[in-house]
């Protein structure tokens, strides 16, 4: 398995964890009597920072662990080749495109909540949710392209 593929899987897992955290917190707020703006804003901040932080830390840790594992396997302390070649870049671009399309659909659905008379907090909560789901869709699309071929 290539380092790029492992990176995508790590990203996918971290995005799924953030999604679960976000949904559980939203559900709890709803159970406690609806969305409260101060709590919702804090949750958004936590979720956005968590996604950025997990992406960066996940990438760094993946490279470190992979280097150690390969050094143990080969018995040499050589510098590991973490090449991102043209195929990786193409797959990444296609994944980003899938993410954008998913996010656009999410934005449209969020806007529709106004039509059915929901408050703006619901719309923005759905926006954040569609952002996380778009990241997950992009990751899955990349995994699919790595397996099936470009």
């Amino acid at each position: 398995m290539s380092s790029q593929l492992i990176n995508i899987i790590v990203g996918l897992v971290s995005h799924l964890l953030v999604l679960v955290y976000y949904l559980v917190n939203l559900y709890q707020m709803n159970q406690e009597g609806g969305l409260v703006s101060s709590k919702v804003f804090t949750l958004w901040a936590i979720v956005i920072v968590a996604i950025i932080f997990l992406n960066i830390v996940g990438n760094i840790l993946t490279y470190i662990v992979l280097s150690i594992v390969r050094a143990i396997k080969t018995g040499k302390a050589e510098e590991e080749r973490f090449i991102v070649d043209e195929r990786d870049k193409l797959i990444e671009l296609k994944g980003v495109r899938v993410s954008y399309i998913s996010f656009s659909i999410g934005v449209l659905i969020s806007m529709l909540t106004f039509v059915i008379g929901q408050p703006p907090l619901v719309m923005f909560s759905l926006l954040i949710l569609s952002g996380i789901l778009a990241e997950i869709t992009g990751d899955i699309a990349q995994l699919y392209l790595y397996r099936r071929g470009v």
């Binding site: 290539s2 593929l5 090449i83 070649d85 043209e86 195929r87 790595y146 099936r148």
Partner: peptide, 25 residues
């Protein structure tokens, strides 16, 4: 892969006709 500067996975994909390389590659 090392000689042409790509990953082994890319060479595998090209060999199995799952990926059409750029003209330069």
């Amino acid at each position: 892969a090392e000689k042409v500067g790509v990953t082994r996975q890319t060479i595998i994909a090209i060999e199995s006709a799952k990926y059409a390389p750029s003209l330069e590659l």
